[in-house]
């Protein structure tokens, strides 16, 4: 497996940064064009799955240990709920972004960006986790 699929390995290496960069672009440009946390998470996960398919699951697990990914998965959801509670502490309702900044419009913008980030993190981590548990099954 080490030297097989030479072209695939080189192409993957070339494409990886662009896929991940595109995922981040979709994540943070989602306010202005099509995109958002869900899509970005899935694209990020897909890029990772590509890496795992070409370089093998062991290499992929070295890059992203399953335990760490599971923690990140939780962090995304916590970020979402945390933004909700933060609004609550600042005197608004749960998930009320108007109070996050001095200006309600800025508060909304900030809240939406943070929440989308939480969505993206959780979706990406969940996709990677699901794939790794499927692929990890093969080895034994």
């Amino acid at each position: 497996m080490v030297q097989r699929h030479f072209i695939l390995r080189v192409t993957t290496k070339l494409l990886m940064p662009f896929i991940l960069l595109f995922a981040l672009y979709v994540q943070f440009h989602g306010d202005f064009g099509p995109g958002g946390g869900f899509q970005a998470g899935v694209i990020f996960g897909a890029g990772f799955v590509l890496y795992a398919l070409i370089y093998g699951v062991e290499a992929a697990e070295k890059v992203a240990p399953p335990g760490v990914i599971r923690v990140i998965m939780t962090l995304g959801l916590l970020l979402f709920v945390g933004v909700g509670y933060f609004g609550l502490f600042l005197g608004g309702a749960f998930l009320d972004y108007n109070v996050l900044a001095h200006d309600p419009v800025h508060g909304q913008h900030l809240g939406i960006t943070l929440v989308e980030l939480g969505v993206g993190i959780t979706v990406a981590a969940t996709m990677i986790t699901i794939f790794l548990s499927f692929a990890g099954r093969n080895r034994t």
């Binding site: 958002g36 869900f38 998470g41 899935v42 979706v123 969940t126 996709m127 699901i130 548990s133 499927f134 099954r137």
Partner: peptide, 20 residues
């Protein structure tokens, strides 16, 4: 639908895991 698609893939994965 946007959210439903992603939820759909997650539940599909759960079903596939059960099949395995």
């Amino acid at each position: 639908i946007l959210t439903a698609i992603v939820v759909g893939i997650a539940t599909t994965a759960l079903g596939l895991a059960l099949i395995v």
